[in-house]
């Protein structure tokens, strides 16, 4: 067992974990934040996308021990403490960019990264940016709209 110290959504945590424990399982089962979803266990679907030290990471293929000392942001940390939604969350809602919702937390987190790297992406750049995240419901068109709407809102 190893002790790790992490900041998740602005709160500090310290736990003993098995070295083989995946970061997603640490977040979901030890901390109890179940908004991050396991879709493929192989980094191919992006449902588990979170931010580690400001960079988008697929938490299914990172060990919890690798996050020792890191600052983590998950979908649960996006809305303001008073419940006000983040502009990207608002955009997903307005544009009907989700159906079953399972890929949505990962999509929202990758959208944040896309817009941080490029605040005014073209449709092509948006689609390239979403390439690591699979959605089986929407055909992506409304997700593209949501990223545009979020960009306009200055997210």
């Amino acid at each position: 067992m190893r002790t790790i110290n992490v900041s998740v959504n602005g709160k500090q945590y310290s736990h003993e974990v098995e070295p083989r424990m995946l970061l997603i399982h640490y977040l979901r089962e030890v901390i109890g934040l179940t908004g991050t979803h396991m879709g493929c266990e192989t980094s191919l679907c992006g449902a588990c996308t979170i931010e580690v030290d400001g960079k988008a990471v697929k938490s299914c293929t990172m060990f919890a021990v690798q996050a020792d000392g890191a600052k983590i942001l998950t979908v649960e940390g996006l809305a303001a403490p008073d419940g006000t939604l983040h502009p990207i969350q608002e955009a997903y809602w307005t544009e009907h960019a989700l159906q079953c919702g399972f890929c949505t937390p990962g999509m929202i987190m990758i959208t944040k990264q896309i817009l941080e790297r490029n605040p005014n992406p073209t449709e092509h750049e948006i689609r390239e940016g979403l390439d690591g995240n699979l959605c089986r419901c929407t055909g992506y068109q409304h997700i593209v709209n949501a990223v545009r709407t979020a960009a306009k809102a200055g997210a």
Binding site: T34, G35, H37, T74, Q89, W93, G101, I108
Partner: peptide, 19 residues
């Protein structure tokens, strides 16, 4: 009309079986 089910889904607070 935008969906009534979305707030729980976009905030990561919905409950799927694994949750």
């Amino acid at each position: 009309i935008k969906r009534k089910e979305d707030p729980r889904l976009i905030t990561g607070t919905a409950t799927y079986v694994e949750d």
